[in-house]
Simulated scan of single mutants.
Amino acid sequence: MRIGLQLGYWGAAPPPNAEELVLEAEGAGFDSVFAAESWGSDAFTPLAWWGSRTRRVRLGTSVAQVAARTPASCAMHALTLDHLSGGRCVLGLGVSGPQVVEGWYGAPFAKPLARTREYVSIVRQVLAREAPVRNDGAHYRLPYDGPGSIGLGKPLRPITHPLRADLPIWLGAEGPRNVAQTAEIADGWIAVYYSPRVAGMYEDWLAEGFARPGARRSRAEFEVAATCQVVVTDDPAAERAKLKPSLALYIGGMGAPGMNFHAELFRRMDYGEVVDDVVRLFGEGRREEAVAAVPDEVVDDVAIIGDAEVVRTRVAEWEKAGVDTLLVGCRETGHIRSVSAALGLGG
């Protein structure tokens, strides 16, 4: 099992100890460092800035939002970071949700699967650099020939030769169709709120994608990276309580009413009544009650909390369930060291 440090996205200001965390993670045997974006900080700049102090860990976006950049621009970001890091970039992409895509980026959200497929195809064309990049799909046209075009667009290849044509592209996906497409066209899957209890369901979704004609990878070649809070502690109850506000927010407050992909994920895990309660309470502004409505079982399904022996046992369970990498959020160097020691990562 590989362990990655999930830096996430920034709040009101940059985390003051992020560089310290990155260096500690590399020294403690972590495999990778990932950064995210929402509608504030971006995912690439922190990796370039803090990653410049590292020599070994992979540097991944988890996730870069498809609506934030054109496919060609995203490919430029990835090939630049890959060169600067000596081939350590992992390009994680995701569609986000309609509130962010249409409200923040001013772009349409409809048909996210088809949009993602075109996006990935263009990024791969740029990285392959075999011919000028063209795309005549419904979502991205290269050269552009739509409204406002003056007809002078020219297909281009990147001036800079990409370091790796096969730079890994991972997709963040939650629903069955998204996960199946991820298995078909990507090199890895970034799973949010993964639960080994329903691993069979996930494997069925993945298998559908791998079975499609022209699928890029086999299951053995594909990497599953799951976001998972791992906490080594003798007081698991206290640590569960710390995670419940975030879970309540994602279940009850992230996404538009009737279109919250996180809530649907927990429904598929047979927590329909919990989701209904949390969504209702959150919508009524009763946030403390929404947090209290998240049972311990939900936390234990998607997180690993306990003493060192419990952590080792449960990490082994996640690995057996098909997870290759755990992306762990750590805000203190002591947290990194405790995870490393429990799992015997070494330096």
Score class of each variant (00 low, 15 high):
M1C: 08
G8W: 04
N17C: 10
E20Y: 10
A25L: 04
G29A: 08
S32C: 09
A35C: 15
S38H: 08
A43T: 11
L47D: 05
W50Q: 04
S52Y: 02
T61Q: 08
S62D: 09
A64C: 15
A64L: 13
Q65A: 12
T70P: 02
S73N: 04
C74R: 00
S85C: 10
G87L: 13
L93N: 03
G94H: 04
V95G: 02
S96C: 13
Q99R: 06
G106C: 08
A107P: 00
K111N: 14
L113R: 06
T116Y: 00
V120F: 03
S121Q: 14
S121H: 12
S121W: 01
Q125W: 01
E130S: 08
V133C: 08
H139C: 12
L142G: 03
L142I: 15
P143D: 05
G148V: 09
G148I: 07
S149C: 14
G151S: 11
L156G: 00
L156V: 12
L163M: 14
A165N: 07
W170T: 06
G172I: 06
V179D: 00
T182N: 06
E184F: 07
A186F: 09
D187S: 10
G188R: 13
R197F: 05
G200E: 13
G200Y: 09
A215Q: 07
F222Y: 11
P236S: 06
A241R: 12
Y250D: 04
A256M: 12
P257M: 03
N260I: 01
N260A: 14
F261T: 00
F261M: 05
M269Y: 14
Y271V: 01
V274A: 13
D276L: 09
V278H: 03
R280P: 01
V294M: 05
V294Q: 00
V302K: 05
R314H: 14
V315L: 12
A316R: 15
W318C: 05
E319R: 15
C330K: 01
V339S: 03
A341C: 01
G347S: 14
